[in-house]
Design a protein around this nucleic acid. Structure first.
Lengths: 210, 210
DNA sequence: ATGATTCTAACATCATCATGTGATTAACAA
DNA sequence: TTGTTAATCACATGATGATGTTAGAATCAT
């Protein structure tokens, strides 16, 4: 039996979802609150739900901030964002804050039920549009680098050394070459990347711009 | 009418999927090849498919490498990886290389069909297990920082300067304080983070560990 | 063969960084 | 009041980094 909680400020929607889920054989939906604050009170006094459905736009604390707090106190609760927002910032902030799923509000009741079942089985419910944005985000990660700035594999070795916080001497030791060779490579790397400090190389690299 | 292509080295699976999709009213599956190389030949001489289903493990060029090439030549083709691999590296490499979806091989034929329809409607087909990994990846992005290493806001200002590749002198100018004050802050930051170079601070910061 | 890259290396020099020590001021909590 | 923390500044010194110049050996494509 899965216990579900709802945080949603629209009473109509809240009641509708609660009644529907409560009606299901394998689900129990004992709590549906208006705000994160109320849900936090409930959580202190009752058995935790397995899954929370949560809106983003709420009176008082936002759903994203609320999720951070709930996840830090009760990390075992899975939270599905259920919202009208489909802008990338809200999506990624939610996921970073610990959301286990992200559904848009036009999702039908049977689909919501299915999503919860999906989640309990180790899946991650996402509306197709959301999945698309998430995937696009990854697609966009790679192609920042430009052709001219391609580093040779030896130069990459050097950069990896920098990434590990090594000094020239330590890189030289690790790669078994002289410190002056390291200097030479660094010079070439700086030219290719149009920078002139270790710091900038590390920043570029970790930002995926190499 | 959606045109589908398949790259899959197992003849049984390949033929099965091709026949099934070709049988559908709204789909046409004129090409199913053994390798990326063959598919590339086909693409040069025929109308492009709208969607490619592609395996990762293939004779000759890997599916991920192949996808990079296909996407660079024909960016309008959507590619769905269809594979047994569920390790994070393969998943993320695929997504970064431009995959529009990622399905595991146990996916049923009707689900594959549904995924293609989903894709054409702007969705992003993913097996639930895959979606879970993707979401977990985001979840893991935020919460690494630990309490003791919390930096003060002034220290954050200094770190931001480092992130921009500035020297002590430039940071001092930007914040309108003396260079020795910058040094002092840097010393404290190093103590808190247990590091001893600009490079390590930048690396930690960009890896989300601050 | 010839030229272009890449990797290797040395020498030199000035700038910047890392670190130690010590101190003043303000804000805030015990 | 006293202790703590944050932010500010100074002086000093050895280590490391950034940059210029030069050059031999290996690889590879034209």
């Amino acid at each position: 039996m899965a216990i579900i909680g709802i945080v949603e400020d629209n009473k109509k929607i809240r009641d509708l979802i609660q009644r529907y889920l409560d009606m299901q054989e394998e689900m129990d939906c004992p709590v549906a609150t208006d705000s994160v604050e109320e849900m936090l009170e409930f959580l202190e006094e009752h058995q935790h739900p397995d899954v929370l459905l949560m809106d983003i736009q709420l009176p008082g604390m936002s759903g994203i901030k609320g999720m951070e707090i709930i996840k830090s106190k009760y990390p075992e609760i899975d939270i599905i964002m259920l919202t009208v927002y489909h802008d990338s910032h809200k999506i990624f902030d939610s996921l970073k804050a610990g959301a286990s799923g992200y559904l848009l509000k036009h999702t039908s009741l049977p689909e919501i039920k299915e999503s919860i079942e999906n989640l309990m089985k180790g899946g991650a419910p996402m509306s197709p549009q959301i999945a698309r944005k998430v995937i696009t985000h990854f697609n966009d990660m790679a192609p920042k680098k430009n052709e001219e700035s391609m580093l040779t594999s030896r130069e990459q070795d050097i950069v990896n050394g920098l990434l590990d916080g090594l000094s020239y001497k330590m890189i030289a030791d690790r790669l078994d070459i002289s410190i002056d060779t390291v200097r030479a490579h660094i010079r070439n790397i700086y030219k290719k990347l149009h920078v002139n400090s270790k710091a900038e190389v590390i920043a570029k690299s970790l930002r995926g711009e190499i």
